[in-house]
Nucleic acid binder design. Structure first.
Lengths: 159, 159
DNA sequence: CTGATATGCTTTATGTCTAAACTATTGACA
DNA sequence: TGTCAATAGTTTAGACATAAAGCATATCAG
């Protein structure tokens, strides 16, 4: 945690401004991730990737193809296969045939999956709110907007 | 009841604002990470965690204990063991005895490790600069400052 | 000095992630 | 229509990550 602090303080040169920003991004993300991962494990015996995948499905009631899940989660296809396998074994989602393409599945939450995700999402939101509670809402909004521009830049840069 | 309801919806909005910020952070970090990971693999046949570990050692010429590496990199000790093993096998660092504590090592870059890291760090910095080049320096600085406050909040929140 | 406890590191079991190779289906096109 | 590249998904091998248990050494209280 004092990790990037040491590195950052050394990078006072203006040429390193981007590098410093990147290290801050990385550190903040890791800190939040660690907190959420532990909370999900403790409270729900589950993991962040599984929660993430369920969150994607929640927003797509008609189901998503594996590849679409992969793109939205920014992970590779093989990875999605494994996570879907586990959630399917747990009865939280199902692979259904895609009537339009016999190579593809449409992955959908089960009723139990929706029920459980509802519980988890509510808790998750309150964890996040608490973690960010020391930052004024105005600043949070400004941060989010800057990051939106950055995201646009990054997706244009790396298609 | 209606008073509580109004408060509730306002809190929920705040929650969503934080959640939005968190998702942006995560997405931007993943995009940059993916880019850097691929570049490190392609140009130097190495990985981000190894690069990261070497970066920590570079700033500590007298060497670092495994546990200190673990704390600075925000990962568990067992993880550091594996990465140090690989870099040691590759001749890029050495475990030396800690004269002050016979349980501990001091891990140090070798001359070859310093040489290689120098090359990688220069390239790495230019990749990052390019990825962030669409964001004005002034905005980058503001972003980094906001993230510094957030980092402070997070390390206080999750000790 | 001695025993209890804490610390530094490694090992193990499990889960996540990538890249690359593989199977099956689709779709374009000559 | 027959061919063949592209696409959807899975599998494989290997690296990274955690938590938890284990071993060796330090440290401290009595």
């Amino acid at each position: 945690m004092s990790a990037a602090l040491g590195l950052d303080t050394r990078l006072t040169d203006d040429h390193h401004e981007s590098l410093r920003l990147w290290l801050r991004l990385l550190t903040c993300t890791h800190l939040v991730e660690a907190h959420v991962r532990k909370a999900l494990a403790k409270e729900f015996k589950t993991t962040l990737p599984r929660f993430d995948l369920m969150a994607q499905l929640e927003r797509a009631p008609h189901g998503l193809q594996m590849g679409e899940l992969s793109r939205r989660m920014l992970v590779t296809g093989g990875n999605v296969t494994g996570i879907v396998d586990q959630l399917e074994r747990g009865g939280l989602l199902v692979r259904t045939e895609d009537p339009a393409d016999r190579r593809a599945y449409l992955v959908k939450l089960t009723k139990e999956g929706r029920r459980l995700f509802g519980q988890m999402a509510a808790e998750h939101e309150s964890w996040i709110a608490k973690l960010f509670s020391g930052i004024p809402k105005r600043e949070q909004r400004a941060l989010a907007e800057s990051l939106t521009r950055l995201r646009g830049q990054l997706t244009r840069e790396t298609p």
